[in-house]
């Protein structure tokens, strides 16, 4: 039983359906990765799970509860957190203020959570008084993760977290994502760098034209010759 399940999702942005009945799921402490060619509907599937577009068919289930009709904000309250691909920090605010904004809905004392995040991302503690917009791409991405984690979510959703960063920074970000997964958070992410992402994935989904083409463990997908040939460049 997965903590989060988007089942047979069909929908798009108003015009033609981009998702043609795709299914994604993630379990507690697990990292699930959605990969696939450009235009496969990876990010769209992510947005559908988070309620940022209306589904014509299918449903989204969180911990046994149907949340298909909830707004994104309501899903945040239910324990989901989403890191968009771009514009995912408050550029004019300091790192610490970004984290505070992540905890905006919390009425309890969130200093403990902030300390945990500083432990997870030590660079953020060092740069806490600096504006997030002045940081490097990789550091900015960590601010975005940190902001999303401030609500102590059960599910962290990442839309192409390594887009536009150097290979070294990408490795570091993947390490951080594994650490987040180890804290018991379910991680669902979309990745352009399919091979590296499948290496850390417990479950991998290969989407093509809005449908599931392959679903297996990350290791099995990497070993699958057809997947390798078609989607991982040999």
């Amino acid at each position: 039983m997965s903590i989060l399940l988007g089942e047979n999702m069909v929908g798009g942005y108003g015009g033609a359906d981009i998702l043609q009945g795709c299914t994604v799921a993630v379990d507690v402490g697990e990292i699930a990765v959605i990969v696939g060619p450009n235009g496969a509907g990876k990010s769209t599937a992510m947005k559908a799970v988070f309620g940022m577009l209306n589904l014509r068919e299918g449903r989204v289930v969180l911990d046994g509860k149907d949340i298909t009709a909830l707004s994104p904000q309501a899903r945040v309250k239910e324990g989901m957190a989403f890191v968009p691909q771009t514009n995912n920090v408050f550029a004019g605010m300091t790192v610490e203020e970004n984290l505070e904004m992540g905890a905006y809905l919390r009425t309890d004392d969130f200093r403990g959570t902030m300390e945990q995040i500083y432990d997870l991302f030590p660079i953020l503690k060092e740069k806490r008084r600096q504006a997030a917009g002045e940081l490097s791409g990789g550091q900015r991405q960590q601010v975005a993760f940190g902001r999303a984690l401030m609500t102590e979510p059960r599910i962290l959703m990442l839309d192409e977290p390594t887009a536009g960063v150097s290979p070294i920074v990408m490795d570091e970000l993947f390490d951080r994502i594994i650490e987040v997964g180890r804290t018991g958070v379910a991680v669902l992410m979309v990745e352009q760098n399919a091979a590296q992402a499948l290496e850390i994935a417990d479950t991998g989904y290969v989407l093509v034209t809005g449908e599931n083409r392959f679903t297996d463990t990350g290791a099995a997908l990497l070993a699958n010759p057809e997947v390798r040939r078609s989607f991982l460049g040999g």
Binding site: N87, F90, G92, Y104
Partner: peptide, 22 residues
Amino acid sequence: SRTGKAMRAYSDNEDLALLSGV
């Protein structure tokens, strides 16, 4: 203030502020 920070956040990045529950 909390409201003041929410206003700055909303001005800085409206979508992200909405995601944060502003």
